[in-house]
Design a protein around this nucleic acid. Structure first.
Lengths: 147, 147
DNA sequence: TCAAGATTGATGCACTTGCATAAATTTTCT
DNA sequence: AGAAAATTTATGCAAGTGCATCAATCTTGA
């Protein structure tokens, strides 16, 4: 009988593969988007969160939590989106420190325009490689990692 | 009966969660390494691949394939590792274009020094959140994504 | 054999990210 | 209420990444 190691090798292997696989697939999806002249996925994600939100509006700190991004990262991503006209920043009515961010109609339009390409990319690079039930399995297991 | 959608929602959700979860956990692990004064994970990964390789030596293009990184990314990562003295670049004997990269003893030492911190970080941020069997499940499912 | 094409690796440039920290509020606690 | 602590957002600067492209070599195939 062998004593159990502090971290079972299977866990480290799974960890390493998680990083390699998700990074590689992300890169492939981003490449497809770029090939069709679209902005990076992060832009899509922000716009999607906003379009789903109450009043199509969120505080940056909310976006930060939902997308699990660093604060300064969100701040600058929103700068770029605003500069491109896809969102607008308003003074937050409730919180004097804060900002409120709303999707513009251009933003909604971009979301619609990107969707077919995005969907096709995820299908080609992700979904098509899975077997039945894999998606649900991933959802469950990964759910434990995001608390 | 509903017609099946082109991409089932479960797949998109799994995709999104894969990106968020792996990104977030990676960030947490990197933070722990940095907190202990260690270089980024990529450094560890390169050194590990090298230390396992024949003659502790690999061609950059091999590292590229194993780590699923972009070519220019590998090139510069190796520059940094070489500048820090953890690897050395040799002219490839077989291929006049190529380079051969070998871990130095400092590189091996760094690998050893980082391991406890790395292991603890993965355990805290990843392994501890999993249930029995999850690691194997992830390994299987993600294996389909890396071909 | 030798020209056309593919592979290997590096690099200039623009853009993005990370870090540390600032500035303005808001919240908490006494 | 008022001081101390926490929260929200922005930003200067250094470091890393992506893109396009180059130069050198190797491989293919007529």
């Amino acid at each position: 009988m062998s004593k159990s190691t502090p971290t079972p090798p299977a866990a480290i292997d799974a960890w390493a593969r998680l990083q390699r696989a998700s990074g590689a697939v992300l890169a492939r999806v981003e490449t497809r988007l770029k090939a069709d002249g679209f902005p990076p996925l992060g832009w899509y994600d922000v716009l999607l969160e906003l379009s789903r939100a109450e009043d199509r509006t969120l505080r940056p700190v909310e976006i930060e939590k939902r997308m699990l991004l660093a604060q300064y990262n969100v701040s600058r991503l929103l700068d770029r989106l605003a500069a491109a006209g896809y969102i607008e920043k308003l003074k937050s009515p409730e919180d004097g420190r804060g900002v409120s961010v709303r999707v513009t109609s251009e933003g909604e339009a971009l979301l619609k325009a990107m969707w077919p390409c995005y969907q096709a990319a995820v299908e080609a690079e992700f979904t098509n490689h899975l077997e039945p039930g894999d998606a649900e399995t991933l959802w469950d297991v990964l759910g434990r990692l995001v608390r």
